[in-house]
């Protein structure tokens, strides 16, 4: 039971870090960026290269490398906006969406050209996990959860105390007014790209810490991240965090539940034990999104939009 809780929280941490930036870009520029998760991939690999070059112990090297990677990817986010998306302002969101698809491909395969197609790992020492009840919590897993928590608290502070945050919340309250009063200056847009991409890079590093680094890692987590964003209501960072928790728990609980009694009660199956095979895990966020779109397309915390 506790193991499920731990696994779900780790997953939610990764999803939240990637989802918060995605939902912000989505809200301000009004298109879902299919390039967003690739910032995570690029960030994870940049952090790998830097941490290998640093002379400190593996843990502290990675911390420094991670921070440098966040800044670097933040600027990369701003650069892609300058190079591509800023030239398309005012175009149909569909065009931006497709352009982001192209940017994503360039980032992913650019990373593959630089770092290769093989899986790699951060040089973290093997550490003995703590035993909590029936669950095992490795120090790195604990670090992921803590980092995500702290980041979300910081982000909450940013959202409530800074220009960026005030602009963001102004949109949540009244999009037309915010646009009319020129809150969406180019500066805010750049800030959104920077923060979003940097958070994605952090998410990518956390993904790499949790398992391995691979140039497909961003793409593989893309659909669950979108699921979290849609569940939370597009444009709502708090919603994205909530959505990340829902998806994280749904994925892990969905696999752990014995559906046998339910299935036989419904007359669908006769076995007493019926687990969703691990291979179908990818289907869970997708199913959540479909159910959500059918019931409440504006998301759990979403407002109706014209």
């Amino acid at each position: 039971m506790i193991q499920i809780l731990i696994d779900s929280l780790i997953r939610a941490a990764e999803l939240a870090l990637l989802g918060v930036g995605l939902t912000m870009v989505y809200d301000v520029l009004r298109f879902p960026s299919f390039a967003h998760v690739e910032f995570g991939t690029v960030g994870a690999f940049i952090a790998l290269t830097i941490s290998l070059a640093l002379p400190f112990g593996p843990g502290s090297s990675l911390v420094i490398a991670g921070i440098v990677a966040m800044v670097a990817v933040g600027f990369l986010g701003v650069a892609t906006d300058r190079a591509v998306f800023s030239r398309l302002r005012g175009n149909s969101p569909i065009l931006l969406l497709i352009a982001s698809f192209g940017v994503g491909i360039v980032l992913r395969f650019g990373a593959q050209a630089i770092w290769g197609a093989n899986a790699q790992s951060y040089p973290l020492p093997l550490m003995r996990p703590w035993l909590i009840g029936d669950g095992r919590l490795t120090p790195s897993a604990a670090a992921i959860i803590v980092v995500a928590l702290v980041t979300m608290l910081l982000f909450h502070f940013v959202l409530n105390r800074t220009t960026l945050g005030i602009a963001m919340r102004a949109t949540a309250d009244n999009k037309d007014l915010a646009e009319a009063s020129g809150i969406f200056t180019e500066r805010v847009i750049r800030l959104v790209w920077f923060v979003g991409a940097a958070l994605a890079a952090l998410g990518g590093v956390m993904l790499g810490v949790a398992t391995q680094l691979h140039t497909n890692m961003g793409f593989e987590i893309m659909l669950p991240v979108f699921a979290a964003v849609i569940l939370g209501g597009i444009g709502n960072p708090y919603g994205a965090v909530l959505g990340a928790l829902v998806v994280g728990f749904a994925e892990n609980i969905g696999l752990a539940i014995n559906w046998g009694s339910l299935a036989s009660a419904l007359g669908l199956a006769t076995e007493d034990f019926l687990f969703i095979p691990v291979g179908y895990k990818a289907a869970i966020p997708f199913t959540l999104v479909i159910i959500m779109l059918l019931l409440r397309p504006t998301g759990l915390l979403g407002e109706k939009r014209a």
Partner: peptide, 28 residues
């Protein structure tokens, strides 16, 4: 069917997911 009335950003996400779902099913 589920997205017939929705905006194209939802289409993008749902269709890419549906294709992945098909691949996951055949893969497993």
């Amino acid at each position: 069917l589920p997205i017939g009335n929705l905006r194209q950003d939802y289409w993008a996400i749902v269709t890419i997911a549906a294709a992945e779902l098909v691949r996951v099913i055949f893969l497993n």
